[in-house]
């Protein structure tokens, strides 16, 4: 009996180990290995084209830190990410809670509609919103006599960030809602019933039942949104191209421009590595906060 149990544990732990092998191997070869090569380039002066390059140590990193465009991009990203994360997580949480109620009428219609933006590729989003900001919003703004939106908001240094933000949120809420909804599904219905019998009010139910089950997925959504805010790229290229006057130049746009348009490949990677470290740090702080609150 004793022996059999021991053998089973070995079988189990061996299987568990084998479970991790395919994903880890793939990930190492096609993810980590290219990243390591990339990091190595960041310590050289390779321009992305020449055959020759030499090791220059940390000087790409130092140049990046002292560059005013890089600093501006960091500021933009932080502002943008803060606003985007609050809006996206807030809206998608509300929507997920609404959609989690089976008594909602026309549920699948609403869900279908709310999912639409996620399906669209960047190309169509860029084309449509450029036209909307150029031709539709100003007309509405003039009609309602609101000066802030009476002309193309992408054209002004102070408002362009909001134009980009609106489109980013418009696109991202759908997927975040889907994830949160999946998280809500892990809370068993009978717990709610028991709570109702115990006379819990709506807030108590949310605080003590929904929240603990939602929290793991919520923190995943938070981190993914922080990441997508800090690496925002294609929306900006499609809408403002970093302008006007650099007002919406994000780190990813800067990195791409440096790497491909300005032939400073290794420098661009150094910038990207700094960005990586920033995202890691923020996410680490975020997880350690939410881990403290986590209830198993």
């Amino acid at each position: 009996m004793e022996k059999k149990k021991k053998k089973k544990i070995t079988e189990k732990s061996l299987s568990m180990f084998l479970f991790t092998v395919p994903a880890t191997v793939l990930y190492c070869v096609f993810f980590i290995y290219p990243i390591i090569i990339g990091i190595m380039y960041s310590f050289t002066d390779w321009n992305g084209l020449s055959k020759d390059y030499k090791f220059i140590g940390l000087s790409n990193y130092i140049t990046a830190f002292t560059n005013s465009r890089f600093q501006n991009a960091v500021k933009f990203n932080i502002r943008f990410t803060l606003m985007a994360v609050i809006l996206i997580v807030g809206l998608s949480l509300i929507l997920a809670l609404i959609f989690n109620n089976s008594k909602l009428r026309c549920m699948s219609l609403f869900r279908g509609i709310y999912f639409f933006p996620a399906v669209l590729g960047m190309l169509v989003v860029g084309l449509i919103f450029n036209e909307i900001f150029y031709r539709v919003v100003p007309v509405i703004g003039k009609g309602l006599n609101i000066p802030a939106i009476s002309s193309n908001i992408l054209a002004s240094k102070s408002t362009a960030i909001y134009g980009v933000l609106i489109v980013h949120v418009w696109l991202a809420v759908a997927m975040a809602t889907v994830m949160l909804l999946a998280g809500l599904q892990s809370a068993p219905e009978d717990l709610y019933e028991a709570a109702v019998l115990d006379g819990a009010n709506r807030w108590q139910k949310f605080r003590y039942i929904t929240m603990p089950f939602l929290l793991p997925v919520l923190s995943v959504v938070l981190i993914l949104q922080i990441k997508s805010g800090l690496t925002v790229y294609d929306i900006i290229v499609a809408l403002t191209n970093g302008g006007p006057g650099g007002a919406t130049e994000s780190l990813a746009v800067l990195i791409y421009n440096h790497g491909f348009k300005e032939v400073k490949f290794s420098y661009a990677i150094a910038e990207a590595m700094i960005l990586t470290i920033v995202i890691c740090a923020i996410s680490f702080i975020q997880t350690s906060i939410s881990n403290k609150k986590k209830v198993y």
């Binding site: 994903a23 880890t24 990930y27 993810f31 980590i32 290995y33 290219p34 990243i35 090569i37 990339g38 990091i39 380039y41 992305g48 981190i223 993914l224 990441k227 690496t231 780190l251 990813a252 990195i255 791409y256 790497g259 490949f265 661009a268 990677i269 990207a272 590595m273 960005l275 990586t276 995202i279 890691c280 996410s283």
Partner: peptide
């Protein structure tokens, strides 16, 4: 495995 989430695409694109 989580590290991968944080690395922007540009770092590994060419390699």
């Amino acid at each position: 495995l989580l590290i991968g989430i944080f690395v922007p695409f540009q770092v590994k694109m060419m390699p």
